[in-house]
């Protein structure tokens, strides 16, 4: 209850509340948070009318129960049954991400939203068609006029969705409680795993660090011997950038299987096996990729720590669920 009150106050002040060692979330000056806009964005997020054939919404691929990922699917299914090529990332703490998409090409949540809405194999709708469609729905027409001085535009659709996404804060895991001083919040195995994680032996922390457990940097983690998905090179056209992808947050990672940019690794155990052997023989493999030599017990401890990053409240919080 205290959290809800504080959250509302901070929303009105144009910032998003964060507890513990989370920094204040940056909010664009031209898109301040307001409760009405957040609710409008929430409604849009769960509305399948944002897709060309009214079949899928943002929430189809970003489901709260799975920390806003896609329910065990390696890649997402768009309109007309079309399969994408990448794994839907979690939206937990997405308001702090410095760039969006797996190759980090989008600078803001507002602009990022244009991707899935217009991509032919996702929601596949033309901006002009979407704006006209929503203008024909009185409740949207009224809500946009109330929230935005210029009413219903494509930009304002993305602004509202981004405002809702900025509320998706996940910071109530056992790890957060442990950091806040509750020594019993994590099991002994998870604590051992945490020490490995942040030590040179486990070597996870070079990429997964900070409050959101990501440095935001891009790496080639030697997932395969070749780079069928160009990753960052799709933007830069540099050979050396082929196969580089953004480091995802691993908060709620136990809920977000399968893993990697293409969803090709089904379990946490197999992810750790991949890193333990130093990845595949990829020409662009990151210099950090090397055999780790971790024992089965150590891998088990690491997995216990990763499970301690699960914020169950985040997956049940009614503020993030579909509006009734």
């Amino acid at each position: 209850m205290k959290f809800t009150t504080a959250f509302t106050i901070c929303c009105l002040a144009g910032v998003v509340f964060a507890q513990g060692f989370f920094p204040v979330m940056p909010i664009p000056a031209d898109n301040p948070q307001t409760p009405e806009k957040i609710q409008l964005g929430r409604k849009l997020f769960y509305d399948a009318r944002l897709s060309a054939d009214n079949s899928i919404s943002c929430s189809s691929c970003h489901q709260q129960k799975f920390a806003f990922t896609n329910a065990g699917n390696a890649v997402s299914t768009g309109i007309r049954g079309q399969k994408g090529s990448r794994n839907a990332p979690t939206l937990g703490n997405v308001g702090w991400r410095k760039s969006l998409f797996w190759e980090g090409g989008s600078p803001s949540l507002e602009l990022q939203a244009m991707g899935p809405i217009t991509a032919h194999d996702e929601m596949g709708i033309e901006p002009s068609v979407l704006v006209a469609r929503l203008k024909g729905i009185p409740e949207y027409s009224k809500a946009f006029s109330s929230v935005f001085t210029d009413g219903l535009t494509m930009l304002n659709i993305t602004r509202a969705i981004a405002s809702f996404e900025r509320t998706l804060v996940s910071n109530r895991s056992p790890y957060d409680q442990y950091l806040a001083g509750d020594q019993k919040a994590m099991s002994k195995a998870a604590v051992r795993g945490m020490e490995l994680f942040f030590g040179e032996n486990g070597d996870c922390f070079h990429c997964h660090n900070g409050f959101n457990l990501t440095t935001e940097a891009l790496h080639n983690t030697a997932l395969q011997k070749t780079n069928p998905d160009l990753g960052l090179a799709r933007i830069t056209n540099r050979k050396s950038d082929e196969g580089k992808f953004k480091t995802p947050t691993i908060r709620n990672v136990a809920l977000t299987a399968p893993y990697m940019h293409d969803g090709s690794i089904p379990t946490l155990e197999k992810v750790l096996d991949h890193y333990n052997k130093g990845g595949e023989d990829n020409p662009n493999a990151d210099t950090l990729m090397r055999p780790l030599g971790l024992s089965k017990t150590e891998i088990s401890d690491l997995i216990e720590f990763l499970k301690a990053l699960t914020d169950v409240e985040f997956t049940r919080d009614p503020r993030f669920a579909a509006p009734k």
Partner: peptide, 17 residues
């Protein structure tokens, strides 16, 4: 997000990624 047509989000040509 602010540039007018023929550019901008409503052009149908913006590449979000």
């Amino acid at each position: 997000s602010t540039i007018p047509m023929p550019l901008g989000l409503e052009s149908g040509m913006y590449w979000a990624w």
